[in-house]
């Protein structure tokens, strides 16, 4: 389908990633901004209530998952409606290793990461032949199947079937003076920053340029000697890995996994977060995560019975006002600001 390919590359060019080049002169302002943000992030757990800390941690978990999705869709131009599956894989890996095998939670993260990378890479290989809507359908199938697989009776011994698994909340190590909400907050923040740094570096490396070349013009990229298949499968693997780590963290933070937390709706949420944040713009993941975690609550405040409809209307309004997501809005605002100066 040439049309869908065309659309996919539109999607890429509409979110012109390499902002670095244009924005280089004002690196100062940018560094100050992110420095302040980090300062707020570090002080936040000491000045707010535990429930808010918990919610913020959940936001960061979603942000990491969306970051992974962004690498695949925004940077590499491959569509996925099924990233909830990798999130679920990460979550269940952590839960089973901790509760069934009694492994320390810190070890579950690298294991989940490795497992999700392999799963993503292997899924990415056959998916190479599929483009646009066809890839959407394949990943969609994955998302739909996930909760059903998790419920299957042969695996009940591990997965706990429909009941799922309850996880004990880990406390702070080394006698740090933190309660477990605060500790998990910092753990998530640290891992989030690490993964952000990783993705940022990938994007600005040779590999990242190859990913983007494939997104913008696969035929030209392969004729320039880019091994399209390998890069696409790798992008899938790395993307699944990041989303999977988010899943593990999510399981530990929420202390519970069950098949019905990982339905198609989860994949949809990740996608909504990606679009709201801005496709191809890495920091957008955080904005998107804030949206998908808090806006449903706002919708419920407006009307209990019609919460879903309110959410839908809010979504439509946001897309009207910011068709390119937060990315476009911030870009326009920065431009206007510059013009004022």
């Amino acid at each position: 389908m040439s049309t869908s390919e065309g659309k996919m590359s539109d999607l890429g060019s509409s979110a012109p990633w390499p902002a670095g080049a244009a924005a280089r002169p004002k690196v100062g302002a940018r560094t100050i901004f992110f420095g302040l943000l980090l300062l707020v992030a570090v002080t936040l757990p000491f000045i707010s209530k535990n429930f808010f800390i918990f919610q913020t941690t959940v936001v960061m978990v979603y942000a990491i998952a969306i970051l992974g999705l962004n690498l695949l869709i925004g940077v590499n131009g491959q569509f996925s409606l099924g990233h909830g599956a990798f999130y679920a894989l990460g979550a269940y890996t952590a839960a089973i290793l901790m509760e069934t095998f009694g492994l320390h939670y810190a070890w579950t993260l690298p294991i989940a990461a490795a497992l999700c990378f392999v799963a993503g890479f292997l899924f990415g290989l056959p998916a190479l032949r599929l483009e646009g809507v066809y890839l959407a359908l394949a990943t969609f199938a994955l998302a739909v199947t996930t909760p059903q697989l998790l419920k299957l009776s042969p695996f009940e011994g591990f997965t706990g079937g429909v009941q799922g698994i309850v996880i004990t909340k880990p406390g702070a190590p080394f006698g740090l003076p933190l309660n477990s909400d605060q500790w998990l907050y910092f753990l998530t923040l640290a891992i989030g920053l690490l993964l952000y740094w990783l993705v940022h570096n990938i994007v600005h490396s040779r590999t990242g340029r190859a990913f983007m070349a494939i997104r913008d013009n696969p035929i030209a990229a392969s004729s320039m000697g880019v091994n399209t298949s390998l890069y696409k499968a790798t992008a899938f693997g790395v993307s699944a890995m990041i989303t999977g780590v988010a899943g593990s963290l999510g399981a530990i933070v929420i202390q519970f996994v069950a098949p019905d937390s990982f339905t198609f709706a989860l994949s949809v949420q990740l996608l909504v977060g990606l679009v709201i944040g801005g496709v191809g713009w890495l920091p957008g993941a955080l904005i998107g995560a804030v949206f998908v975690v808090f806006i449903p609550n706002v919708a419920e405040e407006i009307s209990k019975g019609l919460a879903g409809a309110c959410y839908g209307v809010l979504l439509i309004l946001v897309i009207y006002l910011a068709p390119q997501g937060a990315d476009g809005v911030i870009r326009a605002a920065v431009d206007r600001f510059k013009r004022l100066l």
Partner: peptide
């Protein structure tokens, strides 16, 4: 962009 349309569809769904 396409993905914004997808979000609109999700909104209509809801």
């Amino acid at each position: 962009p396409v993905l914004s349309h997808v979000v609109i569809f999700i909104a209509l769904f809801a």
